[in-house]
Amino acid sequence: MQILLFIHSLLRWLVLISIIYSLFRVYMGLKNQTVFSKTDNLVRHWTATIAHIQLIVGINLYIKSPTVKYFLSNFKQAIQHLEFTFFGLIHILLMSIAIIVLTIGSALAKRRKNDEVKYKTMLVWFSLALFIIFIAIPWPFSPLAHRPLFRPF
């Protein structure tokens, strides 16, 4: 369980960095009116892939988590506590939605014919996914649940 938490924590940063880097490339592509390059396409693809790997690790954690097990087996009591509700319901729901949004955006951008439309498609969908992810991460300053920025191994 500890190794999964470490990997999930590490992948969080890779997901965030890859989405932010994707959005930076989108911004530069739109600003400079450049061709949607092979590199842009690889960044799009790998951003979605990293997010999918994170989702798989997260689902494994969800299934094995004692917090989630408690939440599911004691729903009436646990729903009254924000941290149990966050990890038992809010986190998994929002992160799943974010990955779906990111995946749709990636697939739509891939299929667009016009370079500017590819960039704009990624801009909208990846930005929305990033916003949802920021809400759903248990930051140390979050009112929903508190976790460290880095989990030790």
Results as ranks from 00 to 15, higher is better:
residue 76 K to D: 15
residue 92 I to C: 00
residue 79 I to K: 13
residue 130 L to F: 11
residue 137 I to Q: 02
residue 105 G to L: 08
residue 106 S to M: 11
residue 111 R to E: 12
residue 5 L to D: 08
residue 124 V to W: 01
residue 71 F to P: 04
residue 6 F to A: 15
residue 107 A to N: 13
residue 122 M to D: 11
residue 3 I to S: 13
residue 83 E to V: 14
residue 21 Y to N: 08
residue 134 F to N: 14
residue 40 D to G: 12
residue 32 N to E: 13
residue 111 R to Q: 14
residue 136 A to W: 01
residue 84 F to A: 11
residue 31 K to F: 04
residue 19 I to R: 07
residue 54 Q to P: 08
residue 66 P to R: 02
residue 2 Q to I: 13
residue 66 P to V: 01
residue 36 F to D: 10
residue 95 M to A: 03
residue 33 Q to V: 13
residue 2 Q to M: 08
residue 14 L to A: 14
residue 153 F to K: 02
residue 78 A to T: 11
residue 50 I to V: 15
residue 108 L to N: 10
residue 29 G to Q: 03
residue 70 Y to W: 04
residue 13 W to R: 13
residue 57 V to C: 05
residue 135 I to H: 03
residue 24 F to I: 15
residue 134 F to V: 15
residue 53 I to N: 05
residue 112 R to M: 14
residue 27 Y to F: 14
residue 137 I to F: 03
residue 23 L to C: 11
residue 153 F to T: 09
residue 139 W to A: 06
residue 134 F to D: 09
residue 89 L to K: 05
residue 10 L to N: 09
residue 107 A to G: 04
residue 55 L to T: 12
residue 143 P to I: 14
residue 59 I to T: 09
residue 47 T to G: 14
residue 11 L to C: 09
residue 73 S to V: 06
residue 10 L to P: 07
residue 23 L to P: 11
residue 25 R to E: 09
residue 130 L to S: 12
residue 146 H to E: 11
residue 105 G to N: 12
residue 9 S to I: 10
residue 131 F to I: 15
residue 33 Q to M: 09
residue 46 W to K: 10
residue 84 F to Q: 07
residue 18 S to K: 03
residue 103 T to H: 06
residue 18 S to Y: 00
residue 93 L to Y: 05
residue 80 Q to H: 06
residue 125 W to M: 07
residue 43 V to I: 15
residue 31 K to W: 01
residue 123 L to Y: 02
residue 104 I to Q: 05
residue 87 F to P: 03
residue 28 M to N: 12
residue 140 P to E: 05
residue 138 P to T: 04
residue 5 L to R: 12
residue 9 S to Q: 05
residue 44 R to K: 12
residue 131 F to Q: 00
residue 33 Q to E: 15
residue 97 I to E: 04
residue 62 Y to R: 00
residue 92 I to G: 01
residue 126 F to M: 13
residue 85 T to A: 11
residue 73 S to E: 14
residue 89 L to C: 07
residue 153 F to A: 14
residue 29 G to P: 10
residue 103 T to F: 02
